[in-house]
Design a binder for these strands. Structure first.
Lengths: 194, 194
DNA sequence: GTTATGTGAGTGAATATTCACAAACAAATA
DNA sequence: TATTTGTTTGTGAATATTCACTCACATAAC
């Protein structure tokens, strides 16, 4: 896992904010340096080039997500409880850092570079695998319905979660994500229980 | 509804392809003109500026989607059948024009301009409303379950549809979208039926 | 005094857009 | 019929601006 200095983290945070404010096209070295309050050239003391900054965004998100997911997997909880934890943890993460939502469910913004695109794809799949394995265990001990495959259930669950977050963002965070997320979870639980 | 000349359509198509190939950042007047085989300046004979081209992408997608949705709403079919038609029509549309998937579920790529962002938001909401009204009717005549609100059901359904399409695209269209869409539909039908 | 971090000036390439002008064709006029 | 005028669609060169990145030099931290 990559370690970032304080300044590096600051640059990454500024980049995320720029994306959230006005899209990937507004992430320029000039705007980054202005946002932080240093000279453009100073950015290059901390990152080799712009690509490394963008990779930094993804790397940081990946590790904070992994942390949350490992904590959940380690918890002594039923599968349904674990799924609920995935929901509430993700929503908590997004509420704490709303700008990241502009980045993480918008795979297309990183499509201009293969390394970026691959990393985004990997992040997406890691979530999917985690949810999938919880559901499979739940189906084995009959706490989750088995008439629909685990693949399909995880697609449906993650799809709903993503769409709720996207709508939250496109509405300029105009509703309470935690509350709506809780409502969504109750609906999903109702639909997947055995 | 805006009418586009043959050349304008050609430019719009080229722009969509560029986005699909390597992201919004690769949509430059130079690349557009190269793809079409005319001079850069010739582009400006057909669009006032670059923004109008991007608006053209959205406008064209919106009208082709509206066409499909109106056709479905006019059809004499049960609510479940109508939902199935929404699924199959959308998937057919995407299979015919895969590049558009890089654009239409990636709201963030248009966030650098307010007009673009508003148009994207409107397109998303129009789908949602359509599905919502079908579900509400289905709940009234008890063909769709009522223990979960129509809002929640439509969020879940559209979320799954979107995610399937995004995965299809990120996997470089490596699976049969129509087939997987059909499977997804069967699962959803199973979950929402009264 | 060495290393880490910062600065300001400068680079060439890329960017969207504008310009004067030309070829092809149609319509109006002689 | 021959000539003038207008329109559409193109071109290539030029515009100002922005881009990521480099370099010589300064200052602060250890």
């Amino acid at each position: 896992m990559k370690e970032f200095s304080a300044r590096q983290k600051e640059i990454i945070r500024a980049a995320i904010e720029l994306i959230a404010e006005s899209g990937i096209q507004s992430v320029t070295i000039k705007k980054l340096s202005q946002k932080i309050g240093i000279a453009e050239s100073a950015i290059y003391r901390h990152f080799e080039n712009k690509l490394e900054i963008l990779l930094g965004i993804l790397s940081q998100f990946r590790s904070s997500k992994m942390e949350a997911l490992e904590y959940i997997q380690a918890a002594d909880a039923t599968e349904i409880e674990q799924l609920q934890m995935v929901f509430s943890e993700r929503f908590k993460q997004f509420t704490r850092n709303p700008a990241i939502t502009a980045v993480i469910f918008s795979e297309e913004i990183f499509q201009n570079d293969k390394r970026l695109a691959d990393e985004v794809y990997a992040i997406m799949n890691s979530s999917l695998k985690m949810i999938l394995s919880i559901i499979q265990r739940g189906q084995q001990n009959k706490s989750i319905r088995s008439d629909i495959s685990a693949d399909q259930l995880s697609l449906i669950i993650i799809g709903a979660l993503r769409l709720l977050v996207v709508r939250w963002r496109l509405s300029s965070f105009s509703f309470d994500l935690t509350k709506e997320g809780e409502k969504l979870w109750l609906s999903i639980r109702q639909m997947i229980r055995a």
